[in-house]
Computed example of a mutant assay.
Amino acid sequence: MSVNYLGLALVLNCGSSSVKYQVVDTTLDEPIFAGLLERVTDHAAAIKIIISELGDPSAGVDVGAITVVGHRVVQGGEEFSAPTIVTDEVEHKIALLSTLAPLHNPANLAGITAARAAFPHLPHVAVFDTAFHSTLPEAAYTYAIDRHVAREHGVRRYGFHGTSHAYVSRETARLMGRDVRDINTIVLHLGNGASACAVRGGRSIDTSMGLTPLEGLVMGTRSGDIDPAVALHLARTAGMTIDEIDTLLNRQSGMLGLTGYSDMRDAHKSANQGNHDAILGLEIYARRIRGYIGQYFAQMGSLDAIAFTAGVGENDYWVRSNSLAGLSGLGIEIDLDRNVRRSKEATLISTDTSAVQVWVVPTNEEREIALQSIAAVS
């Protein structure tokens, strides 16, 4: 799909209690207007507020020039592998997929329904977090459980953060002066949620998140990879229910469980004060990332670039440095001075002699959603 279509898009990212929105002119680097509504209980009411804000002359938005409304949807399952124009049938299918993303898809769908009612004259496009990973080979997305059970219940790796991985891998190639189709890249999206993605020739061939966003890297409050028998053990020995285990692994684990802090800045402060749990938690965080880098290097056979992105990836020089420590044998060498410099712009942080270029690339998921939405209706 081309990413060069031009136009004006309203991008909506609807959560259970918040709505992020931007008006994106794809000819400009920055959005024309952006906002965030919090403590949302009624998405229809939230959309009315957004319309009011966009209509205010001070916003500088020509609402009549908007050509499409793009919606982030977390889970597209096997049904949706590309940005899709929303119809009543598409809404129904997104609702059915809520069993795979019960915390996200219902809110995404509520926003779509409200926005379609508010903007009935505009096309609406659903852009799925999972779609970029639809190119995973079967061996990468298949779990080693009974195949009949897996097929019946949709148990497989779907992957997430797809819009970010797509944008950053393509942007990294541009910064290198290369065609994305000609390079192998590992994208590390490190925020409160975190995932790694192996991108070969612009296509996702492996990613760390799986059936849900729980698998993979250590995150702010999610455990990442863990022996599945831990859940069985806790149920049998601690008498924990499925919901209690779900809460433990998704909301009380990760850096929060290890250090007492879900914010990496707090974990660093505690570690600098000599707190053993914080020091250990940071080491585990970086160690897990190193493991995935090595795994994906092996899967792709060669590597041209590594890109750090999202809140932690873009701002935490310690995480970048320690995640790549000891990998000079793979041709990965960090320039320590470049790495510690703060910048809002994309920055090369590897040495001039490093065989693998290492970049810090600010992600722009809203722009990617706008580009994909405009392309879908062009």
Rank of each mutant, 00 (worst) to 15 (best):
G294F: 12
N272I: 03
H268R: 14
T237K: 13
I242E: 07
M209T: 15
S270Y: 02
S262P: 11
Y317A: 08
H276V: 01
R222H: 09
E215A: 11
Q273T: 08
S253M: 05
V230K: 15
Y317L: 03
A238N: 05
T309I: 01
Y292D: 00
D243I: 08
T241S: 14
D263W: 10
D246L: 08
G220T: 04
S253Y: 09
I242N: 12
D304Q: 15
F297V: 07
G216M: 07
G291E: 06
A305R: 15
R222Q: 13
Y261G: 02
V218Q: 09
K269P: 00
S262F: 15
R288C: 07
M255Y: 14
Q295T: 14
I284R: 10
G216W: 09
G216P: 08
F297C: 01
G260A: 04
P213M: 06
K269E: 10
A229G: 12
M255W: 09
D266L: 10
G294Y: 14
N272E: 09
N322K: 11
T247H: 13
T247L: 14
G281R: 07
S223F: 04
L280W: 04
G224P: 01
Y285E: 00
R236K: 12
Q299A: 14
V230H: 15
R222G: 04
G224T: 05
V218K: 04
M209V: 05
M264V: 15
N322V: 04
D246V: 11
D263S: 11
L217A: 06
D266F: 15
G291L: 05
L211Y: 12
M209C: 08
G210H: 13
Q299W: 12
L280A: 10
I226H: 10
I293A: 00
G260K: 06
V230Y: 12
T309R: 15
L258C: 07
L217H: 05
I245A: 08
D225P: 14
I226K: 07
G216V: 02
Y292L: 00
D243Q: 15
E283Y: 14
T207H: 15
N250F: 06
V312A: 08
I226M: 11
Y285I: 01
D277V: 01
G291M: 13
T237H: 14
E244L: 00
T237I: 00
G260T: 03
T207A: 13
Y292Q: 00
S323N: 01
E314S: 05
A231Q: 05
P228V: 01
F308N: 06
